[in-house]
């Protein structure tokens, strides 16, 4: 309304996003916006399209229509590795780490240098790499396991390792798909502590079912249902939304 008012710059602007698998619209005309340094949690019942949204943002799945703007760059036209290089990191639901490599090597591969074929041939494991790997390993509670092969880690430790692999990339937008699923109680607490530490200075998009955990960290919650937004706002607002209650408490 003011003259010269510029639309606010969002870190991530998803608008009109649709994807259909053989006629079935898993995500349907979805729009939402994530600000700098915001922690957004996506919740919703099974099959709501939560994981598909992350797949679309990181390029794993190609959108049928719509746009995803990250810092003004259109992600839907980019390849996965280019999206990573613009600053979007993604953790998968099941821990995906390289089991035939050590913790050190896992982290080293994620270190954002020497990502081309030639670059990786000439990559040197210098002091800055070692320092950074050790720093991250300490954050993810794996400092004394640097030379352990990843297949010897517990489920929770693998989850941490994957989070560490994202951290070392230092993304501006971190996307986590159920980061505490399958963890023991003590691991959960440690993960919450870890996430609270790493979400500084970046935006985070989390899918999570653990409501206690969501309440702890979320700035804003988006509720998805059948590929569309059912409700959006603070946890308090969403919790009291009759539509959300209906979906969650059954029909």
């Amino acid at each position: 309304m003011l003259i010269g008012h510029q639309p606010k710059d969002f870190l991530l602007a998803v608008s009109g996003l649709t994807v259909s698998f053989d006629g079935f619209k898993a995500v349907n005309d979805l729009s939402f916006y994530v600000e700098e340094n915001e922690i957004r949690v996506i919740i919703g019942p099974n099959g709501a399209g939560k994981t598909t949204v992350l797949d679309l943002i990181c390029g794993k799945t190609k959108a049928t229509s719509g746009s995803i703007q990250f810092r003004g760059k259109e992600l839907t036209k980019m390849k996965e590795n280019e999206i990573v290089q613009t600053g979007v990191g993604r953790k998968f639901q099941t821990p995906s780490v390289f089991e035939d490599l050590t913790v050190f090597e896992n982290l080293e591969i994620s270190f954002p240098r020497g990502r081309t074929v030639f670059g990786s041939l000439t990559f040197q494991r210098d002091q800055s790499v070692k320092d950074r790997v050790e720093e991250v390993a300490e954050m993810i509670f794996l400092k004394d396991k640097l030379n352990t092969y990843a297949d010897e880690l517990s489920h929770g430790q693998k989850q941490w390792l994957e989070i560490g692999m994202l951290l070392i990339q230092d993304p501006d937008l971190l996307m986590l798909d159920e980061p505490v699923a399958g963890m023991s109680v003590s691991e959960r607490a440690k993960t919450a502590e870890l996430l609270n530490r790493i979400i500084k200075n970046r935006s985070v998009l989390v899918i999570e079912h653990d409501m206690k955990f969501v309440e702890d960290i979320a700035h804003k919650v988006t509720v998805l249902h059948q590929g569309q937004i059912l409700s959006e706002g603070t946890m308090e607002k969403v919790k009291n939304d009759p539509k959300v209650i209906e979906v969650y408490l059954g029909h």
Binding site: F21, D22, A26, T52, K60, T61
Partner: peptide, 13 residues
């Protein structure tokens, strides 16, 4: 050019 073959459904991977 078309690695999925002549007849293939688009499915979520």
């Amino acid at each position: 050019l078309r690695p999925q073959g002549l007849f293939a459904l688009k499915v979520r991977k």
